[in-house]
Nucleic acid binder design. Structure first.
Length: 477
RNA sequence: CGCGGGGUGGUGGAAUGGUACCAUGCGAGGCCCAUAACCUCGAGGUCCAGGUUCGAAUCCUGGCCCCGCAACCA
């Protein structure tokens, strides 16, 4: 099973339409999937939606729609985004899927219970009737709920707790030894230092009358599972863990969970605890990306600076957005989206850089009637340069360094422009044909290298080289 | 208060303690195959103050600033 690659995104919470941050995550996971597929691996690429929870039930009620219809609509939006972005996932799991998802969740719950890791405990919390939820002490302002200005009631509730503390040492060990590798290492440090504070048990259920929209606890109708076991289990439910299905046998453990920094703790601590308790292998890597700001500020409705991925795709297409998010945003850090930076990148890198290089190449090939011959390959300097670039890009992709991989590819583009200037293939001479062939060959290499990042553009480049039809790749804006 | 990460030209990134590099943006020149593109040259930088060292972006101390976390918040 060495030749498989299982990559997941986090599952999106269906309380609102997709956000550009989720687009980033999908795109990064897609690069991993496409790259590994092109290397001949058997790739399973999962994404999906997390649809339970009181927040969603409440929002549906506010809008006066059935909660099922409410989530269906939002799921539709997410699936639309996935299509528009050219994401190559082969599966999509929904936590409301009673056939595929629920049996696994129930199975995991039972395994944890058998292990003696679940127990009931009374819990006292501040319940705000207005919010219809528990508030923590720090939510309170002068002892009242800031939204409703009501003094919360102290309510005692009995819930199931998971003995997470029991697995503290084991989780720490897995992470520090990189058997569960957290990328980048800053995040690994962050989580290890968090765990130094000690882990306490977490509550994993809610009373059914507070949280009706969820998966019932097996054997206890008064309790509904809280998000942890429900949502995180998607990574194995999609593979049919409940029946120890073929896919589970073949693809688990996951090679990479691609997530945002906000949910690192849940994945590297709680999820791992759940897996250890249920006796399931742990994933190999957790890849953590940052957040995207808009015009330097956190995106928010009140600021009106929300970036809608659909607007950009409609205007420019998927590849320019993919390129921007991969090349401009630091791969594991926070980054900024502004229309100006986006258009600058688009013009200088895509239109003037890549597009223009292809255009001059095809132009010259037409002029002397040169044809691309895949059997023929260049020697000397060009051969070495291409080999080096390919090797570096490969290394960058293996280590999830998408931005650097693109920088390496663009280095080849700049290099080629310089090479053309030096060889002046528009002038007749003994080197003319050779140089133009080298240009074609480099463009063909670019098509291969760019495939994981910009699949549509990659295909267009290949087509132009083979058909020798010159077309503008990216219109200058 | 605490814990963690971080501050490199206007912007985004690189740099085993050893000439600060790349891209973009800006200024000047060149070229004419190409999408007013491309090439060359130039200006511009290590948050601040100390310290260690022959030598610091890198190591240490203090300060300022940014980000994340502080567990029932998806």
């Amino acid at each position: 099973m060495k030749n498989k690659f299982y990559v997941t995104t986090s599952i999106a919470y269906t309380n609102a339409s997709p956000h550009i941050g989720f687009a980033l995550e999908l795109i990064q996971a897609d690069v991993m999937a496409r790259y590994n597929r092109s290397r001949g691996k058997d790739v399973y690429f999962l994404t999906g939606t997390d649809e339970h929870g009181q927040k969603i039930a409440k929002k549906a009620k506010e809008e006066g729609v059935e909660v099922e219809n409410f989530v269906d609509d939002i799921v539709c939006d997410f699936q639309h985004l996935i299509r528009e972005l050219n994401i190559s996932n082969n599966d999509f799991i929904r936590t409301t899927d009673k056939e595929r998802h629920w049996p696994t969740v129930v199975e995991i719950w039972k395994k944890m219970e058998e292990k003696g890791d679940l127990y009931k405990k009374k819990y006292t919390g501040y319940y705000c009737v207005g919010c219809e939820s528990f508030l923590t002490e720090k939510d309170l302002v002068d002892g009242v709920c800031p939204n409703h200005e009501l003094e919360p009631e102290e309510i005692e509730e009995e819930n199931y707790f998971f003995k997470l503390s029991k697995y503290e040492d084991e989780i720490k060990k897995l992470i520090s030894e990189d058997r569960l590798k957290i990328i980048p290492t800053e995040r690994k440090k962050e989580i290890l230092s968090f765990m130094d504070g000690g882990l306490s048990d977490i509550s994993v259920s809610r009373s059914a009358d507070k949280l009706e929209w969820g998966i019932p606890v097996p054997g206890d109708d008064n309790q509904v599972m809280y998000v942890w076991i429900d949502a995180l289990s998607n990574y194995v439910s999609a593979l049919d863990y409940a029946n120890q299905g073929e896919d589970y046998e073949k693809y688990w453990p996951a090679d990479v969970h691609c997530i945002g920094k906000d949910i690192l703790r849940f994945h590297s601590v709680i999820w791992i605890g759940i897996l250890l308790s249920a006796g399931i292998d742990v994933p190999k890597n957790i890849f953590v990306h940052g957040f995207i700001t808009s015009e330097g500020k956190k995106m928010s409705k009140s600021l009106g600076n929300i970036v809608d991925p659909f607007d950009i795709i409609n205007d420019f297409g998927a590849d320019p957005l993919r390129y921007y998010l991969l090349a401009e945003i630091p791969t594991t850090g926070d980054g900024d989206f502004t229309k100006k930076k986006f258009v600058d990148r688009y013009n200088s890198d895509l239109a003037d850089g890549l597009g223009n290089l292809l255009s001059r190449t095809i132009g010259l090939a037409e002029k002397i009637d040169a044809k691309f011959d895949p059997e023929r390959s260049p020697g000397g300097e060009i051969k070495q340069k291409i080999a080096k670039v390919k090797k570096n890009v490969e290394e960058d992709l293996e280590s999830f360094n998408f931005k650097r991989a693109l920088e390496t590819i663009w280095d080849l583009i700049h290099y080629t422009d310089r090479y053309i200037e030096e060889k002046k293939p528009w002038k007749e001479g003994w080197e003319q044909e050779k140089t133009i062939f080298e240009m074609l060959y480099i463009c063909y290499t670019l098509h291969e290298l760019l495939y994981p990042f910009m699949p549509e553009t990659s295909e267009k480049i290949k087509h132009q080289i083979i058909s020798r039809e010159r077309k503008i790749l990216f219109d200058k804006r």
